[in-house]
């Protein structure tokens, strides 16, 4: 089973690496990051912080959108090319197939992060800033968990909707999740009992992706220490619960679906 899972994941990774769009996204994002480096408005010390914050945001958004697109198109493309038949004609279960695809998307996300990390590190060192290694590593780890949630959600969406709709909703979800958190925190005090109930339900249903975003801590590392083990474990558990729930929903849909 682990070998079969790896073989499916490897095919996803090969495609992600050989397609040019990942590099295009990294290149455009890099140009954006370099242009930030050229802004000499804040003084060098503040520029370094501005650069760090902006680069981490660009890195997160670009990887997030890449993951949504990559994950959402995995199953529709298998159906479109009819390779789903040749894969499922092998002695593998539908769970192994879907888990392999998810693992492959995560490997592609890690590859994307690796490219961005190189850009980020080169930029930071060029500007002479320190790199808070532990916080940065925690940030990347938690961002990968965010990608796991997004990939599972996108799989589920692609089971229920067509490809375009799945990509649109997945992207909106990713971009607006933080806004939902902020807005619900703001309006909670003004809401009546029913409104508060709805907000609470929403809080449980929609993952709070901002919890997994340490970009500001990493930027202002002189004021923040790295997270302790318990907090990291709780955040991991939180992310895995959402990822598992979305994956289970995708699996339920996929098991019922005729090919």
């Amino acid at each position: 089973m682990p070998l079969k899972l790896w073989l499916i994941a490897r095919s996803v990774l090969i495609e992600a690496i050989r397609r040019r769009e990942v590099y295009a996204i990294v290149l455009v994002s890099t140009l954006l990051i370099i242009s930030i480096m050229g802004i000499d408005f804040f003084g060098l010390k503040e520029l370094t912080k501005f650069y760090r914050e902006s680069a981490l945001k660009v890195m997160s958004i670009a990887t997030g959108l890449t993951v949504v697109v990559l994950a959402a198109r995995q199953l529709p493309r298998e159906f479109e090319m009819r390779t789903i038949y040749t894969l499922m004609a092998r002695p593998i279960s539908r769970t192994t197939f879907l888990a392999g695809k998810l693992f492959g998307v995560m490997l592609a996300a890690a590859f994307c992060f690796l490219l961005f990390t190189l850009v980020y590190l080169v930029g930071t060192l060029y500007l002479g800033g320190d790199i808070p290694w532990v916080l940065f590593a925690q940030h990347v780890y938690l961002q990968l968990l965010t990608m796991l949630i997004l990939a599972s959600l996108s799989f589920w969406l692609s089971m229920m909707l067509n490809l375009d709709a799945a990509i649109t909703i997945g992207s909106l979800f990713f971009l607006l999740a933080a806004m939902f958190t902020n807005v619900s925190m703001y309006i909670y005090d003004y809401a009546d009992a029913f409104g508060r109930f709805v907000i609470k339900i929403g809080t449980f249903i929609i993952p709070q992706l901002t919890l997994l975003d340490l970009s500001e801590r990493t930027t202002h590392a002189q004021s923040w220490s790295a997270l302790d083990f318990t907090t990291m474990a709780m955040l991991t558990g939180y992310a895995l619960i959402f990822a598992a729930a979305y994956f289970a929903l995708a699996m339920l849909w996929f098991r019922k679906r005729e090919l």
Binding site: K4, R10, E15, R19, R82, T83, L87, A89, P91, I92
Partner: peptide, 26 residues
């Protein structure tokens, strides 16, 4: 062994890699 009516195999894979994938899964 199964051959579907029409299938377009992964354009970014090599023939050897495709057969490794299917053989490994078998």
């Amino acid at each position: 062994g199964y051959l579907p009516e029409v299938a377009l195999y992964y354009p970014f894979m090599k023939a050897r890699e495709l057969l490794e994938l299917y053989g490994g899964l078998s």
